[in-house]
Design a protein around this nucleic acid. Structure first.
Lengths: 91, 91
DNA sequence: TGTTTACTAAATCAGCTTTGTTCATTGAAT
DNA sequence: ATTCAATGAACAAAGCTGATTTAGTAAACA
């Protein structure tokens, strides 16, 4: 399922036009990304939470050549699913 | 940031009422969760993708007592961030 | 609405490191 | 009423790493 499918389904479920749904979905994603970029966590109860996490530098290797390479420290976005989401996926 | 904050910000950014934004955000989350529950991946370009992943059974241990315990196999929801999200968080 | 264009995502190789997982409880928040 | 974060230890599993091709999505424009 891609974004177009998602918008269609939400539009059908809510009765709002695809245009409105699309703009809100886009802006919602923008807002979440912006917040994480600013270092703040976004918690959506039942769904999960997004937050930035710092990864320390480490040794890696090039799978093609096998030689060791230095991987610098970096900040990455993470998501951890909430209880409801986990329970529903687990069944 | 929680869901109420998110709805307020998206409402302010789009001009749609909080009621409309709230219903669309909720339904969007529902749709994503439903899709993952059905075993299908949800790909939102630039943001990331949600999909179920199977974890095999393994041995764990109770940190309190130190004794070994059996952790059963299970299915969990996962999210992997897209390039744009990563790039923006990294800076 | 339909088409083109440019860019992103998936898959692949293997080995090492980081991260997640386990229980229980308190406090905060939905 | 219910969920979430945090805490602490230690082990095992999952993921990250480069480079490339293919496939596919999204944005722009007429």
């Amino acid at each position: 399922m891609n974004k177009a499918d998602l918008v269609n389904m939400v539009s059908a479920a809510t009765g709002e036009t695809k245009t409105v749904v699309s703009s809100i979905v886009d802006k919602t994603i923008d807002t979440i990304v912006d917040s994480v970029v600013e270092g703040k966590k976004v918690s959506l109860l039942g769904f999960g939470s997004f937050e930035p996490r710092d990864r320390s530098a480490r040794q890696g290797l090039n799978p093609k050549t096998g030689e060791k390479i230095a991987i610098p420290a970096k900040r990455v976005p993470t998501f951890s699913a909430g209880k409801l989401f986990k329970d529903r996926v687990q069944g």
